[in-house]
Protein backbone atom coordinates (compact mmCIF):
# COMPACT_ATOMS: atom_id res chain seq x y z
CA UNK A 1 0.00 0.00 0.00
CA UNK A 2 1.33 3.40 -1.06
CA UNK A 3 0.02 6.76 0.04
CA UNK A 4 0.33 9.66 -2.37
CA UNK A 5 -1.02 13.17 -2.15
CA UNK A 6 -3.17 13.97 -5.16
CA UNK A 7 -4.81 17.34 -5.60
CA UNK A 8 -4.51 18.02 -1.88
CA UNK A 9 -5.82 14.69 -0.60
CA UNK A 10 -3.88 11.68 0.61
CA UNK A 11 -4.85 8.58 -1.34
CA UNK A 12 -3.82 5.04 -0.46
CA UNK A 13 -3.40 2.78 -3.43
CA UNK A 14 -2.65 -0.91 -3.58
CA UNK A 15 -0.53 -1.17 -6.70
CA UNK A 16 2.80 -2.50 -7.85
CA UNK A 17 5.31 0.29 -7.06
CA UNK A 18 6.62 0.13 -10.64
CA UNK A 19 3.23 1.10 -12.05
CA UNK A 20 3.46 4.43 -13.86
CA UNK A 21 1.69 7.25 -12.05
CA UNK A 22 -0.48 7.76 -15.14
CA UNK A 23 -2.26 4.43 -14.73
CA UNK A 24 -2.67 4.87 -11.00
CA UNK A 25 -4.34 8.23 -11.64
CA UNK A 26 -6.51 6.99 -14.48
CA UNK A 27 -7.42 3.40 -13.64
CA UNK A 28 -6.96 3.11 -9.88
CA UNK A 29 -8.19 6.52 -8.76
CA UNK A 30 -10.40 7.38 -11.71
CA UNK A 31 -8.91 10.78 -12.58
CA UNK A 32 -9.13 10.44 -16.34
CA UNK A 33 -8.33 14.03 -17.29
CA UNK A 34 -4.66 13.07 -17.63
CA UNK A 35 -4.21 11.33 -20.98
CA UNK A 36 -2.15 8.56 -22.52
CA UNK A 37 -0.54 9.31 -25.87
CA UNK A 38 2.80 7.58 -26.32
CA UNK A 39 4.03 5.85 -23.14
CA UNK A 40 7.57 7.14 -23.76
CA UNK A 41 7.49 10.78 -22.58
CA UNK A 42 7.40 11.90 -26.21
CA UNK A 43 4.03 13.64 -26.44
CA UNK A 44 3.28 15.27 -23.08
CA UNK A 45 -0.39 14.27 -22.95
CA UNK A 46 0.18 12.79 -19.48
CA UNK A 47 1.81 15.89 -17.94
CA UNK A 48 1.07 16.43 -14.25
CA UNK A 49 2.88 18.38 -11.53
CA UNK A 50 5.01 16.95 -8.77
CA UNK A 51 5.46 19.76 -6.27
CA UNK A 52 4.71 22.17 -9.09
CA UNK A 53 7.22 20.70 -11.53
CA UNK A 54 5.87 19.23 -14.79
CA UNK A 55 6.55 15.51 -15.19
CA UNK A 56 5.40 12.89 -17.67
CA UNK A 57 3.23 10.55 -15.65
CA UNK A 58 3.53 7.74 -18.23
CA UNK A 59 7.19 7.17 -17.31
CA UNK A 60 7.06 8.13 -13.62
CA UNK A 61 6.75 5.05 -11.39
CA UNK A 62 4.28 5.69 -8.63
CA UNK A 63 6.97 4.72 -6.14
CA UNK A 64 9.00 7.75 -7.27
CA UNK A 65 6.31 10.16 -6.15
CA UNK A 66 7.11 9.79 -2.46
CA UNK A 67 5.86 12.75 -0.48
CA UNK A 68 5.66 15.07 -3.46
CA UNK A 69 2.27 16.64 -4.04
CA UNK A 70 0.67 15.53 -7.30
CA UNK A 71 -1.48 18.02 -9.16
CA UNK A 72 -3.57 16.94 -12.12
CA UNK A 73 -5.81 18.93 -14.45
CA UNK A 74 -8.71 18.18 -12.10
CA UNK A 75 -6.82 19.84 -9.26
CA UNK A 76 -5.89 23.02 -11.07
CA UNK A 77 -9.07 24.77 -9.98
CA UNK A 78 -12.54 23.77 -8.93
CA UNK A 79 -14.25 26.01 -11.44
CA UNK A 80 -11.95 26.59 -14.43
CA UNK A 81 -10.81 29.78 -12.77
CA UNK A 82 -7.07 29.30 -13.14
CA UNK A 83 -5.74 32.08 -15.40
CA UNK A 84 -4.49 29.47 -17.88
CA UNK A 85 -7.92 27.85 -18.08
CA UNK A 86 -9.55 31.25 -18.47
CA UNK A 87 -7.18 32.20 -21.26
CA UNK A 88 -7.72 28.83 -22.95
CA UNK A 89 -11.48 29.44 -22.93
CA UNK A 90 -11.18 33.05 -24.03
CA UNK A 91 -9.02 32.14 -27.04
CA UNK A 92 -10.88 28.90 -27.81
CA UNK A 93 -7.67 26.88 -27.85
CA UNK A 94 -8.84 23.25 -27.87
CA UNK A 95 -9.92 21.39 -30.96
CA UNK A 96 -10.17 17.67 -30.29
CA UNK A 97 -8.88 18.60 -26.85
CA UNK A 98 -7.12 15.35 -26.10
CA UNK A 99 -3.69 16.93 -25.53
CA UNK A 100 -4.99 19.98 -23.73
CA UNK A 101 -4.76 18.70 -20.15
CA UNK A 102 -1.07 18.14 -20.74
CA UNK A 103 -0.65 21.45 -22.54
CA UNK A 104 -2.36 23.30 -19.70
CA UNK A 105 -0.25 21.57 -17.03
CA UNK A 106 2.95 22.43 -18.91
CA UNK A 107 1.79 26.01 -19.38
CA UNK A 108 0.84 26.49 -15.72
CA UNK A 109 4.22 25.18 -14.63
CA UNK A 110 5.93 27.55 -17.06
CA UNK A 111 4.00 30.56 -15.81
CA UNK A 112 4.59 29.66 -12.16
CA UNK A 113 8.33 29.70 -12.81
CA UNK A 114 8.34 32.51 -15.36
CA UNK A 115 5.36 34.87 -15.11
CA UNK A 116 6.20 36.76 -18.32
CA UNK A 117 7.57 34.20 -20.75
CA UNK A 118 8.89 35.17 -24.16
CA UNK A 119 8.11 33.18 -27.28
CA UNK A 120 11.48 31.49 -26.91
CA UNK A 121 10.62 30.54 -23.33
CA UNK A 122 7.33 29.13 -24.57
CA UNK A 123 9.07 27.11 -27.26
CA UNK A 124 11.41 25.63 -24.68
CA UNK A 125 8.72 24.79 -22.16
CA UNK A 126 6.04 23.57 -24.55
CA UNK A 127 7.86 21.69 -27.30
CA UNK A 128 7.47 18.43 -25.37
CA UNK A 129 3.71 18.61 -25.77
CA UNK A 130 2.34 17.42 -29.11
CA UNK A 131 -0.94 18.77 -30.39
CA UNK A 132 -1.95 16.74 -33.41
CA UNK A 133 -4.72 19.26 -34.21
CA UNK A 134 -2.08 21.98 -34.43
CA UNK A 135 -3.44 24.46 -31.89
CA UNK A 136 0.07 25.74 -31.15
CA UNK A 137 -0.53 29.26 -32.41
CA UNK A 138 -3.48 29.63 -30.06
CA UNK A 139 -1.62 27.97 -27.18
CA UNK A 140 1.14 30.52 -27.59
CA UNK A 141 -1.33 33.39 -27.59
CA UNK A 142 -3.20 31.92 -24.64
CA UNK A 143 -0.03 31.62 -22.56
CA UNK A 144 0.66 35.31 -23.13
CA UNK A 145 -2.96 36.08 -22.27
CA UNK A 146 -2.80 33.95 -19.12
CA UNK A 147 0.30 35.87 -18.07
CA UNK A 148 -1.72 39.09 -18.36
CA UNK A 149 -4.65 37.64 -16.45
CA UNK A 150 -2.40 36.36 -13.67
CA UNK A 151 -0.64 39.72 -13.42
CA UNK A 152 -4.01 41.46 -13.09
CA UNK A 153 -5.11 39.05 -10.37
CA UNK A 154 -2.02 39.84 -8.37
CA UNK A 155 -2.17 43.61 -8.75
Amino acid sequence: MLTININGSDRSVDVDPATPLLWVLRDTIGLTGTKFGCGMALCGACTVHLDGQPVRACVTPVSAVGTAKVTTIEGLSADRSHPVQKAWIELDVPQCGYCQSGQIMSATALLAANPQPTDTDIDAAMSGNICRCGTYQRIRAAIHRAAELAAKEQS
Binding site: R26, T32, G33, T34, Q85, I89, D92, P94, Y98
Partner: peptide, 21 residues
Protein backbone atom coordinates in the same frame (compact mmCIF):
# COMPACT_ATOMS: atom_id res chain seq x y z
CA UNK B 1 -18.68 32.45 -30.64
CA UNK B 2 -16.64 30.26 -28.36
CA UNK B 3 -16.94 26.54 -28.81
CA UNK B 4 -19.47 24.78 -26.60
CA UNK B 5 -17.05 21.94 -25.86
CA UNK B 6 -14.22 24.17 -24.66
CA UNK B 7 -15.07 24.21 -20.93
CA UNK B 8 -15.01 20.41 -20.69
CA UNK B 9 -11.69 20.36 -22.54
CA UNK B 10 -9.86 22.65 -20.13
CA UNK B 11 -10.74 20.88 -16.89
CA UNK B 12 -10.30 17.24 -17.84
CA UNK B 13 -14.02 16.42 -17.75
CA UNK B 14 -14.57 15.72 -21.44
CA UNK B 15 -15.00 11.98 -21.89
CA UNK B 16 -12.98 10.43 -24.72
CA UNK B 17 -13.00 6.77 -25.65
CA UNK B 18 -10.08 6.09 -23.33
CA UNK B 19 -11.96 7.63 -20.37
CA UNK B 20 -15.00 5.35 -20.36
CA UNK B 21 -15.50 3.62 -17.02
Amino acid sequence: STRLDTPAKVDGSAIYGIDVR
